[in-house]
Simulated assay, not measured.
Amino acid sequence: MTRTADTGAKQACVAGLLLAAGGGRRLGGRPKALLEHRGELLVEHAVRVLREGGCGPVHVVLGAGAAEVRARLGAPVADVVLVDNPHWARGMASSLTAGLASLAELPGVPAVVVTLVDQPYVGAAAVARVVAAHRAGSSLAAAAYGGVRGHPVLFGREHWAEVARTASGDRGARAYLRQHAAAVRLVECSDVAAPDDIDVPDDLALLERRLERRLE
């Protein structure tokens, strides 16, 4: 992972939280964080996206294969913190809770943008739009794709404790977001991002071809 010379990320108050702990069951147990695309690991790409989108610091929750992920990432990067989740097999909620707990130790961070490691076509432009929603006064915001809520999702600090308390299994914060749907500002991102999950290596190539056709 290379150091990013993005001054916007240095100036931003909004933190980034990358959930990258999954075990990659459909990948034969190979963590999705270690998939490679366009010459870099998905975890490297996702960290760069958060930083270029205006987030800092960035906390990355690791679980399956954490030691290998750390080894592949190499030397630490400024403002990037790796958080181990020993309970990653319990689902996404455990990683969200671990990440929020680590960020809660930092004073002066008013909000966090949460992204998933297996959505490589959610890029910096989508992150920046969600960050801008916070700067415009929203404490709950999410990217939308054709009006349907997706990632990234932004939580103001005042929501973190209850998000962590209500998070469950692989559903993460869905219940909390549904309960507070009227307060969630949806930021349309379908023109700059695609929310497709990567479950198997072939999904990367299939999705890229589909996006290329859309842009022709």
Rank of each mutant, 00 (worst) to 15 (best):
P86K: 02
G28M: 11
V80F: 03
T115H: 00
A142Y: 03
R135D: 12
P76A: 00
G137P: 07
A75I: 11
H87G: 04
P110S: 02
L96K: 05
W88G: 00
R90N: 01
P110L: 05
A78N: 01
V83Q: 05
L34I: 11
V109Q: 03
V43N: 04
A46V: 15
A104Q: 12
P57T: 15
G74H: 04
V109K: 02
P107T: 05
G137C: 08
K32V: 15
A101K: 01
L35P: 10
G54F: 13
V117I: 13
E36S: 13
A124R: 03
L34V: 12
L116I: 09
G63E: 09
M92R: 07
E52T: 11
R135F: 08
V109D: 02
G63P: 08
A101E: 13
V127N: 00
V130L: 05
V58M: 01
G74M: 06
P76N: 04
V49R: 03
P57G: 12
P86V: 09
H59N: 07
V81E: 10
L35A: 12
G99Q: 08
G22I: 07
A75W: 09
E52L: 15
A142D: 03
E105D: 01
R38V: 14
V43P: 00
P120R: 00
A21W: 09
G29W: 12
A126M: 08
A93Y: 06
T97V: 11
L41Q: 13
S95P: 07
N85M: 01
L106V: 15
D118A: 04
M92V: 08
V69P: 03
L35V: 09
S139Y: 06
A141D: 12
Q119I: 07
L96I: 12
E52V: 15
A141S: 02
L106Y: 01
V114D: 02
R51S: 06
G74K: 09
P120Q: 03
L50Q: 05
G137Y: 06
L82W: 09
L35Q: 11
Y121K: 03
R48S: 13
V43K: 04
E68Q: 14
R129V: 11
C55Q: 07
L62V: 05
V69S: 03
V60Q: 05
R25C: 00
G29D: 10
D79S: 13
P31T: 14
S139R: 15
P107K: 00
G53W: 14
S102K: 01
D84R: 11
R25Y: 07
A93V: 09
V109L: 04
L50S: 03
G23N: 14
V60G: 01
L41M: 13
G39I: 14
V113E: 01
D118K: 08
V43C: 08
L82H: 06
G99V: 10
G28T: 14
R90Y: 00
R70M: 06
A143T: 07
A66C: 08
A71S: 14
S102L: 00
V60D: 07
V117G: 00
S94W: 10
G22A: 08
G29H: 11
A136F: 00
